[in-house]
Design a protein around this nucleic acid. Structure first.
Length: 1012
RNA sequence: GCUGAAGUGGUGGAAUUGGUAGACACGUUGGACUUAAAAUCCAAUGUCCAUUAGGACGUACGGGUUCAAGUCCCGUCUUCAGUACCA
């Protein structure tokens, strides 16, 4: 009986589905464990072998936890709103819901065939109205909340309103827009309803604001930064302009400090936490107000170094700063205007990328130093960004390198305010060893003391205060797209109104085209039935809009991160109980949060920050009990492709070339004609084995297809051409060629990098009848590691692997490739190693007569092999070191085969160890051993130290640290006895050649080292 | 520039606390079986020197600590990822 993996795998996948083997229970005596994969977007291309890597790892962990007696929640679903489906819809007119459905089917089939232990009964899809009903509900809750800085949490907006009614906003300490001014209870009560709504919007956790976006008029849409290349759109190369649009924003900045502090409570990688810390960008310092001379104006700056305030020798404003036009003197106006114009032309990217060019202009105006009252020239410079802080800097050239460079460039004085520091070459930015000088009351103080004192003195003057600044900006939440969640919002007199929970979901309307309207409105502007009737509480046709009972609905949709910011809570509830709540309290209480989250690092500052924000908000408002979504998080590394290249010859007639003329090589008309017809037949059809190119000095210069040309004279190839085309040497003499490197589909190449010429010729019509220049009888391709992508022909589909080797082989091999978190290249050739292991494993249990396992008493060696495997595998899984477990399994099966082990006492527990990795073969052999229950909850074997206890050790004997030979000695031998035995050994005597050792180091159980 | 991770045979990688560097695989070479191929099995395989015995070198590079360094310390280089005129 041999190992028929296809049959076995299909059988068990069906069994698991039919028996709901992996259904999680919401009521269980077992401890809970929640393992989650990052939400997949079901793309049209389906899965390639890189995608399941993280799913396999999490599946191993989930299965392991079941063996360890946990009630495991391991769900899966789809982040099914998104741009690709919408773009496909724009191109083809096909409704995104249909393509999404098709793509999900493909995904599901591919996932099923890999044998994941998902509880599919809990599947969610963000584009499903039953789901996005609750996304809309959360949005409403954000709208109905403000952030109270006193209690440091979100609270209902109603509380704020009652304070406004009773006493105005003077005592309110809340996160709000910068432009909020003070008002009294009388003011508030006197406000019109519209004025009150406007004011509340400045406090709400989601609010409407005019935000600058990258608007592409030609595409009629807003683009993300990475969709813009060199100032034009990536698609189509259309111009992009900065445009202000009214959009929903999320007041995530209110949570900056808590998002930062929360990082200390979760088990994430340092690099990930570091990215989030950088993104939040906390800096502690002071805000300082400078009066502008001869103007009724002030410049506010934020500085992290108030201690250096006496070193200020100029101010720099962003060219876009509002004050610039007001304060610029007539004499400087021309220069300043020219500079502003030049800056505006430079794209944000150019401006940021160019660090070397120092540019700026003097406004002619002066500010007043708060302490010395000296005039300080005000400059503008594009190294100051309008969007960060206040858009203005107090420039301290002696302490900041950029200020220093600017001052040097424009001959601005650089006063030195540091004691005993040379600043003639560069700025001195070391905070720790600073002693302040030339600074009046700050003289002699260190950074800490001087900072404190400077802030105190500024407060006395009323010109500054201590302040903490965060880089984190509020997140824009509107998208001008079709395929996303509609907002539960309609507008009365232009003011947003929320639709009550009982009328949700507001379902995405039908449109006849998925493009923006001609007027530049989002695609929902094309919907005919998209108005809200406050009497029937229903969506009604637009022509009913009367602005008394029927109002227009919001035209934007929500961004991709809306649905993915809370989906992990939805999984906690069983589908049957999801009707009236996003998840019941019991479910939320039982599952708490995700214990293990696995996914790619590209979500470091997007999804992973936004979901933390939403969870903290939901926690504040009492909707969930936890305030972090993901306790432990692991990033899986990317799987790269191993591209294959062939070397193609592009032929030219060189009969008249100098080289031939010089050698006296002449061609007759007849010969030239032959050359031409040869080229006609064989141009771009002759391929040279990589062996010919391998040692060429300019190998690196050989261009890829269509990427320039390089004439390469490779004598071996001429030689090969002459051999290949017998009796045509004269023709060959007259031919010149260019070699270019061409991607070839990796499925045509075998494990030894030999090309399958048949498959290659059938690939494309123009490749038929190709000629191959072999070296030593074989045609080799070259290989390079690149990102896996269709255009590089290095994509490997898991379907093909499952078909040829089976899902268990795929699972093992993905793990075997290397550490989970590291990027590593895929090379299908290596899979024969793990596949061979599974066959060997099978043979350990089954021979031609069926199962061969018996009740034989296990030998000492058998037990040793089993228990060292238990220990190693358990440690490995706990440390997410899955690659080393696979090696351990191989070693165990090699050893047990060697030992001719047939003992059930060994082979049965071994199956449990392997089952998280290769569940199908484990189930099959488990049932063959007579078990009638699935292996999935069989207890994990218990490690027993006693089987590993050794009586002797093969000591390495080193001389001056170099191992020369080994010696088997009893472990209970004393240090002295070991030394005596070793010193008396003939090999030791031979090594020493009569020398007297200076010292003998004996570490019992480890090593002996003889020095001298 | 900054932050983080990493650099080990032809290749993927192992070495968990400083203690036998290269486990386990792939590939390669040779052999067995076979009419042949596939499959399977056996052996060798870091580099160099040597017929053998054996020896020298060897974990990016240069130093250091130690009886002993892939592992610890200092410096340099390279690669990858993230981020960026962040005041």
């Amino acid at each position: 009986m041999s190992y028929h993996f296809n049959e076995i795998e299909a059988k068990w996948q069906k069994y698991w589905a039919d028996n709901h083997t992996f259904k999680a229970e919401n009521n269980s005596d077992k401890p809970k464990y929640y393992v989650l994969d990052m939400f997949p977007y079901p793309s049209g291309a389906g899965l390639h072998v890189g995608h399941p890597l993280g799913y396999i790892a999490s599946d191993i962990y989930a299965r392991y936890k079941r063996h360890k007696g946990f009630n495991v929640l391991h769900p899966q679903g789809y982040d099914s709103f998104g741009l690709p489906a919408e773009q496909y819809a724009i191109q083809t007119g096909q409704h995104p819901a249909i393509t999404t459905e098709t793509n999900i089917k493909t995904y599901r089939r591919q996932l099923d065939q890999i044998g994941f232990s998902f509880d599919w009964s809990r599947e969610v899809r963000t584009s499903n109205p039953d789901y996005y009903k609750w996304t809309q509900w959360i949005f409403i809750q954000l709208f109905e909340s403000y952030y109270c800085k006193d209690s440091n949490m979100a609270r209902p907006i109603a509380e704020l309103i009652s304070v406004f009614e009773a006493e105005g906003n003077a005592r309110i300490n809340a996160a709000c827009d910068d432009d909020v001014t003070a008002f009294t209870a009388e003011d508030w009560n006197g406000f019109s309803s519209e004025e009150q709504q406007d004011m509340l919007l400045k406090y709400r956790l989601t609010y409407l604001a005019k935000t600058e976006v990258n608007w592409c008029p030609a595409l009629g849409t807003v683009l993300a930064n990475d969709e813009i290349v060199n100032g034009v759109s990536e698609r189509g190369g259309h111009p992009v302009i900065r445009k202000k649009m009214t959009q929903w924003s999320m007041r995530i900045s209110a949570y900056a400090e808590r998002l930062l502090q929360g990082l200390d409570t979760i088990d994430w990688t340092d690099s990930l936490k570091e990215s989030q810390r950088n993104w939040i960008g906390k800096s502690v310092g002071a805000s300082v107000t400078f009066n502008v001379n001869n103007h009724d104006a002030v410049i506010d700056v934020f500085t992290t170094r108030p201690d250096t305030i006496y070193g200020v020798s100029f101010m720099t404003l962003a060219p876009e700063h509002d004050l610039v036009s007001k304060i610029t003197t007539a004499a400087q106006k021309a220069e300043v205007d020219a500079y502003i114009e030049a800056t505006a032309k430079r794209s944000e990217r150019d401006r940021m990328a160019d660090v070397k060019t120092i540019s700026g202009a003097f406004t002619g105006a002066y500010a007043e130093h708060p302490f010395t009252k000296e005039p300080i020239p005000i400059w503008i410079g594009d190294y100051v960004l309008a969007g960060y802080g206040t858009g203005a800097v107090m420039s301290v050239p002696c302490g900041d390198q950029r200020d220093y460079d600017f001052a040097k460039h424009f001959n601005i004085p650089i006063p030195n305010i540091f004691e005993g520091v040379d600043i003639s070459e560069e700025a001195y930015s070391d905070k720790d060893n600073t002693v302040i000088a030339n600074s009046d009351f700050l003289n002699g103080m260190n950074y800490k003391k001087a900072t404190k004192r400077a802030i105190y003195e500024l407060e006395q003057l009323g010109q500054g205060e201590g302040k903490t600044n965060y880089r984190l900006r509020d997140a824009v939440f509107s998208r001008q797209r079709y395929w996303g969640e509609p907002f539960p919002v309609y507008y009365v007199n232009g003011k947003p109104q929320m639709i009550a929970l009982e009328h949700l979901p507001i379902v995405l309307p039908e449109v006849e085209k998925y493009l923006p309207t001609e007027e530049g409105e989002p695609p929902l502007g094309r919907a005919d039935v998209w108005a809200w009737c406050t009497e029937s509480n229903a969506v009604v046709p637009n022509d009913k809009i009367n602005d008394t009972t029927v109002f227009p609905l919001e035209l934007n949709t929500m961004p991709g991160w809306a649905g993915s910011s809370w989906y992990f809570f939805r999984y906690m509830e069983e589908a049957a109980n999801r009707g009236n709540v996003f998840a019941t309290e019991d479910a939320l209480k039982y599952w708490e949060n995700v214990d293990l989250y696995i996914g790619g690092s590209e979500h470091a500052t997007g999804h992973l920050l936004y979901s933390r924000f939403w969870v903290k908000f939901m926690h504040d408002r009492g909707f969930v009990g936890v305030d972090e979504p993901f306790k432990k998080l692991i990033n899986q590394g990317m799987i790269l492709g191993t591209s294959a290249f062939v070397y193609r010859l592009t032929l030219e007639n060189h009969s008249d070339y100098l080289a031939n003329v010089l050698t006296g090589n002449e061609f007759t008309q007849e010969e030239k004609r032959k050359i031409d017809s040869f080229i006609e037949i064989y141009n771009n059809k002759v391929f040279a084995s990589y062996e010919f190119v391998k040692n060429h000095p300019f190998k690196e210069w050989i261009p890829e297809q269509n990427k320039g040309t390089l004439h390469t004279y490779i004598p071996e190839i001429y030689e090969a051409l002459r051999n290949h085309f017998k009796d045509m040497s004269k023709v060959i003499e007259g031919i010149g060629f260019t070699v270019s490197k061409v991607h070839v589909d990796v499925s045509f190449v075998d494990s030894s990098d030999k090309l399958n010429a048949n498959k290659f010729e059938k690939w494309r019509p123009e490749l038929s009848n190709s000629e191959f220049l072999l070296k030593e009888g074989s045609f080799l391709v070259s290989r390079e590691v690149e990102k896996m992508s269709k255009s590089k022909y290095n994509v490997v589909n898991p379907d093909a692997i499952c078909e040829q080797y089976g899902a268990d082989s795929l699972r093992l091999y993905e793990m075997f490739l290397g550490p989970l978190e590291q990027a590593k290249p895929w090379n299908t050739a290596g899979i024969t190693g793990v596949h061979g292991f599974l066959k060997k494993l099978w043979k350990l249990y089954v021979d031609d007569n069926g199962i061969k396992v018996n009740d034989a008493e296990p030998s000492k060696d058998n037990l040793k092999t089993l228990h060292k495997t238990i220990k190693k595998v358990e440690d490995d899984i706990e440390n997410f070191s899955f690659n080393t477990s696979v090696s351990t399994f191989m070693i165990a099966s090699n050893e047990l085969t060697q030992q001719k082990c047939t003992s059930k006492a060994i082979l049965e527990p071994l199956l449990v160890l392997i089952s998280p990795y290769a569940p199908h073969i484990a189930e099959e052999l488990w049932s063959k051993l007579g078990n009638d229950q699935s292996i999935s909850t069989a207890p994990f074997p218990k490690f027993e130290e006693k089987h590993l206890v050794e009586s002797s050790k093969n000591y390495p004997i080193s001389f001056n640290g170099k191992m020369r030979f080994t010696l088997e000695l009893p472990l209970d031998m004393s240090k002295d006895d070991i030394e005596k035995t070793v010193m008396a050994h003939e090999k030791t005597i031979a090594q020493l050649q009569g020398r007297e050792p200076k010292k003998v180091i004996v570490v019992p159980g480890k090593i002996v080292n003889i020095v001298g």
